[in-house]
Design a protein around this nucleic acid. Structure first.
Length: 135
RNA sequence: GGAGUCGGCUGAAUGGUCGCUGUCCCUGCGGGGAUGGAGGAAAGUCCGGGCUCCAUAGGACAGGAUGCCAGGUAAUGCCUGGGAGGCGUAAGCCUACGGAAAGUGCCACAGAAAAUAUACCGCCUGAUCGGCCGGCCUUGGCGGGCCGAUUCGGUAAGGGUGAAAUGGUGCGGUAAGAGCGCACCGCGUCGCUGGCAACAGCGGCGGCAGGGUAAACCCCAUCCGGAGCAAGACCAAAUAGGGGAACAGACGGCUCGCCGUCACGCGUGGUCCGCGCGGUUCCCGGGUAGGUCGCUUCAGGUGCGCGGCGACGCGCAUCGCAGAUGAAUGACCAUUCUCGACAGAACCCGGCUUACAGGCCGGCUCCCACC
């Protein structure tokens, strides 16, 4: 029963450019034709969502609003397994042509993938350098 | 009823569940409740204002905008009314609608010629020469007509062109012609009348300037300081740095809060000397992240009355109608219908322009039918 937890208050969002910068600096990615989602553990007890929907990807403001609302709605309805992650969602060019149900399925896939991927290296959360380039 | 034209309105509805956000109330500070929450274009950012900061004695130049007249307005490049020209049977629509008798530039092709005014073709009188024809008479002369060539002149009527050629039509006139003369139209100018004016009407006078292009330069008239809410005002961490105060090991001096000497720590170095740096606490101002204000109550909407042809103005009553800030105004489900367009506030207004599935209402015009 997650109904009581399915809210989206201010604490569940990324609010400053510093918070966005932290995610961009070192992130686990998940991408498809519609979205790219960046993810990084935040050490908090809950998840936080940030949106980066550029004017370049979606020309009309009405389209940008629709995508952002859809993403927030999907994020809000996720069970608490996302807890402890900062997420930044970026829209790609083709999104406006798709209808809501298609995009909703895409978003759910992203959430699940990122939960799995971030679970593995999060053992120590020791932020090993991403430039591990192994030859 | 059909075709057209002008103007206005609308922009799926109802219920349930889960959210976001402004305001108010309650609270055990976890939250709960009530209520408000995109547009006619919120768009393009093309004009005009308010507001804020900066600049500013006054003027000139440059640059830009506007361009028939009058009115409306906070203001306009907007709107209303009027005038002129063009289109349409009409309702109605369109107009960058000052100046080409200031100067400069450009004008392909065609055409005799494209702006200088007449050269060329053509037309016509005369002169000379040649040819042909017929007339008169004293047979050798006289005086003619027509055609051709050359030439002195006269012409601007005509010359396939072209977007455009010294205004058009008619009559007279002439060797041929020509505003050469006359009438009407056109143009210019002067006067009168009507109108605030643009302009219109009427009358007189002048035979009459001379292509187009000014969204080519330009001339004339009028207007214009710059930047924009990331404007601007305030609060203000951490870190670094600036200024100041107090305290900080020992000894000595004196004008009694400063000076001098020696110590101390760190760096350099193998070590000494030497050289460089100097601690703690508090305060002050600048300033970054961040936050607060600006931020929605107004050139405000609606109704009624009055003034005005109208845009609009005045008065009274009444209503409170988004205010976010990584940025709210949504998602899902069900039912119904004519299956739903363009599109999302970001300081605020007034315009213009552009986009738009459909639906509704009204005025006017033309045509057809019927009474």
């Amino acid at each position: 029963m997650y109904a009581g937890d399915a809210r989206f208050p201010r604490s569940r969002r990324l609010l400053t450019s510093a918070q966005y910068g932290r995610v961009f600096a070192q992130a686990v990615k998940s991408g498809d034709a519609y979205f790219t989602v960046l993810c990084r553990p935040n050490g908090l007890g809950h998840a936080r969502l940030g949106l980066a929907v550029s004017r370049k990807a979606l020309r009309r403001a009405a389209d940008r609003n629709r995508i952002k609302r859809l993403a927030r709605e999907s994020f809000r309805r996720q069970p608490s397994q996302l807890a402890g992650l900062d997420l930044v969602l970026m829209a790609r060019r083709g999104v406006a042509e798709q209808d809501n149900s298609v995009l909703q399925r895409s978003l759910e896939r992203h959430w699940q993938r990122l939960v799995k991927r971030c679970a593995l290296p999060s053992d120590g959360d020791q932020e090993r350098p991403a430039v591990e380039s192994s030859y």
